[in-house]
């Protein structure tokens, strides 16, 4: 239905999770909500609750401990959902790539739809990525469940 996709495109609610890294991208994400950049003009809200959110914004490199939380958050979100990896750390591990406890990129833990490699990602770039993610959200018509996601009846 065209009007459903249109509504999805115009009202993506965000869930931000900082998995590690240096905070730079996280702070730039918050800066994107403030008057100079104002994400709310695109209907985006930072909900902070996985059950309400449509787009999961991952910033920072993923280690064993935060990976578990990230996975948990992703599974709590209802379909349709899109994951955006903001910053080079979330994409590949970045400068910390060789670290002894890191997964090389958030896509080893959750299926990532969009990559935004930057250090640190500028608010303009974040807005661009989120708008593209909103377009993706509009295209997904109850997307196929990702292979490694648990079946709905098993969800707690």
């Amino acid at each position: 239905m065209a009007w459903v996709s249109s509504a999805r495109k115009r009202s993506p609610w965000l869930l931000h999770y900082e998995t590690g890294g240096c905070n730079g991208c996280a702070i730039e994400f918050v800066a994107a909500l403030t008057p100079l950049y104002d994400l709310e003009r695109f209907g985006m809200l930072n909900t902070g609750n996985p059950k309400h959110a449509d787009i999961l914004v991952v910033t920072g490199c993923v280690n064993a401990r935060s990976g578990r939380v990230l996975r948990n958050l992703y599974e709590q979100m209802s379909e349709p959902k899109v994951v955006v990896a903001v910053g080079v750390c979330a994409c590949t591990g970045g400068i910390f790539h060789d670290g002894y406890n890191l997964a090389p990129g958030a896509d080893k833990v959750v299926p990532v739809d969009l990559y935004l490699p930057n250090c640190a990602a500028r608010p303009e770039a974040i807005i661009d990525a989120l708008l593209t993610a909103a377009d993706l959200l509009a295209e997904t018509r109850r997307r196929d469940q990702h292979a490694h996601q648990r079946a709905p009846d098993q969800q707690g």
């Binding site: 509504a7 009202s11 609610w13 403030t34 104002d38």
Partner: peptide, 17 residues
């Protein structure tokens, strides 16, 4: 707050979504 803000019809988009 000095922002542009969402369009007037934003609540309806939210509801449908």
């Amino acid at each position: 707050q000095g922002r542009v803000g969402p369009p007037l019809t934003q609540p309806f988009y939210d509801l449908v979504k």
